[in-house]
């Protein structure tokens, strides 16, 4: 792992996007200290103003501080995205390892099931699920998690299938490692870097899906600020106050771009063409020494 860290530290492109991503994550976390006003407090004396000392980015149509709403909006959006990714990655990795490592009927069953879920267009499926269950943040998280584990499952399965052929896995088995330990010590650590790329790129994709759902009024419920919902609220003021759609729109675009580019640079670093076989053997040696 330290090899990757060193390589990452030496890569200016990765470091740039990494720092930007950290800032994007820190802003919502530090919202209570950063936001100048309460995001759901109405100031009826200042409706739709473009700019003032108290409201740096103006107010929306019901007199709420727009900058504060943008900052707090990230809380809802990012939190949902991370929860969805945590749930779907957990499900996907578990099923992927089971399918790849056990093989046989388990593999066939899981692969076919994954194919069925993939066959349904994701966004349509999520919209249908949320409409049936009723629009709320909890249901949105549930619906998005239920359809987005497939990618993780497929990637994990493929990686496990190729990794388990490696001699160091054979060596581990011959050295008397139990199955669970074999998977957790020798296989998963080598699957994880590849999944990290997938996860990073998935942040952008999930953010877009979520914003789409909010735009349709299916995710965030008022008055909770959320970027997609802010976009939908500002839509009717496209001519008189374009900032009401441009600012949340740009925030979404910026987030998606930065997380996608971070994923790209991460993939460059983890490119298997540069991975030295030595690392795997070193891991095995370390384990043997410890036991």
């Amino acid at each position: 792992m330290s090899y990757y860290v060193k390589k990452a530290l030496r890569d200016p492109q990765f470091m740039l996007f990494f720092c930007l991503a950290v800032i994007l994550i820190l802003i919502p976390i530090l919202a209570p200290w950063l936001a100048p006003n309460d995001p759901i407090e109405n100031d009826y004396a200042n409706l739709m103003i473009a700019h003032s000392d108290k409201y740096p980015l103006g107010t929306d149509q019901i007199g709420r501080c727009f900058l504060s709403r943008l900052i707090y909006g990230g809380r809802t959006s990012m939190l949902i995205v991370f929860i969805v990714i945590a749930i779907s990655a957990s499900i996907g990795i578990l099923l992927g390892v089971l399918a790849g490592y056990l093989g046989g009927k388990t593999d066939t069953f899981i692969t076919r099931f994954t194919d069925i879920v993939i066959a349904v267009p994701q966004t349509v499926f999520v919209i249908a699920l949320v409409s049936v269950m009723g629009p709320s943040l909890r249901n949105t998280i549930l619906a998005m998690s239920l359809v987005s584990w497939t990618e993780y499952c497929r990637v994990t399965r493929a990686l496990v299938l190729s990794l388990k052929q490696n001699t160091y896995v054979e060596e581990g088995r011959m050295a008397g490692m139990r199955e669970m330990r074999l998977v957790s010590r020798l296989i998963l650590p080598n699957v994880f870097p590849h999944l990290l790329v997938l996860i990073t790129q998935d942040i952008g994709a999930k953010l877009l899906t979520l914003s789409g759902l909010s735009l349709l009024g299916l995710a965030s419920q008022p008055p909770t600020p959320e970027w997609g919902y802010m976009l939908s609220e500002g839509r009717q003021f496209m001519q008189s106050a374009p900032r009401l759609i441009f600012l949340p729109g740009m925030t979404i675009v910026l987030n998606v771009i930065i997380f996608n580019l971070l994923g790209d640079s991460l993939r460059d670093i983890l490119d298997p063409r540069f991975i030295k076989k030595k690392t795997h053997r070193r891991q095995l040696k370390q384990w043997l020494e410890n036991t």
Partner: peptide
């Protein structure tokens, strides 16, 4: 976007 909006906006 920031520049354009403040210019085009009408008062409350």
């Amino acid at each position: 976007a920031c520049g354009g909006s403040s210019g085009a906006e009408t008062p409350a």
